[in-house]
Amino acid sequence: MRIFLAGATGVIGTRLLPLLIGAGHEIAGLTRSPAKAAAIRATGAHPIVHDVYDAPGLAAAVTDFAPDLVMHQLTDLPDDVADLATSGEANARIRTEGTANLLAAAAAAGAKRFLAQSIAWQPPAGRGAVIAAHEAAVLDAGGVVVRYGQFYGPGTYYESTQPEHPRIHVDSAAARTIDLLDAPTGTVVVVDPA
């Protein structure tokens, strides 16, 4: 399967790349950072350096790759968990404008499948409408919404401790995502047992 992975250098994207390549898929990995292209290439994937907010350019990049599936693993979160409360607008923009641009690019490319990450917990006050609209857009396009628990493990906000439920080790989240490539349209919750 040809898969366009948006968010290839994020905390879950870096784990998905080798799993997808190892399973025999041909992957284009999207990053907005030219410095991260080599890391994508090192996995055997095709790096695509582009900004998700440049809709025409994104549509051209996705169309050029001609994927069977577009996977949306983009977030815009701060490096420090202490900054989460003040950085919600950037991540909300990924969930709205970024999602709309990826859906339009997938449609322009004729991709048959779309899979997008979401969250399995109640968002902070005032952010629920953004999550609901993001999920509705994906489902309306016939896609799959993956509601992940809070990630823990290396490279996450919870490297040495576990967050409250719902949670999922980031390596388990990536492995379980591979099983969803052919999932039917709908919402899937990916969390550790409570």
Rank of each mutant, 00 (worst) to 15 (best):
Q122W: 10
L84Q: 02
R113G: 09
T75Q: 12
A59C: 02
F114W: 05
A137C: 05
L84Y: 15
A85R: 14
P56A: 11
E89Y: 04
A107L: 01
D68T: 07
A120Q: 02
A108F: 11
A61P: 12
G110N: 09
L74C: 12
N101S: 09
G128F: 10
D68Y: 00
A132F: 09
T99E: 02
K112I: 08
Q73V: 12
S87F: 11
Q73L: 06
P67H: 03
V70N: 05
D68I: 04
R113F: 01
A133M: 07
V52L: 13
L69R: 10
A136Y: 01
S118I: 09
H134R: 07
I119V: 15
L77K: 03
T75R: 06
R93S: 03
D54G: 06
G88F: 15
Q117M: 14
D80W: 02
L103F: 02
V130F: 14
A92C: 10
L69G: 04
A59I: 01
V146S: 01
I94H: 06
G126I: 07
G143V: 02
L102M: 01
D80E: 10
A108L: 09
E89V: 12
V144T: 01
T86Y: 04
D140F: 00
T63Q: 15
R127L: 14
D68V: 10
V146I: 14
A60P: 04
T63R: 15
H72F: 11
L139E: 04
A85K: 13
A61E: 08
G128S: 15
G57T: 04
Q122S: 15
L77G: 05
Y53E: 12
H72T: 05
L84D: 10
P124G: 13
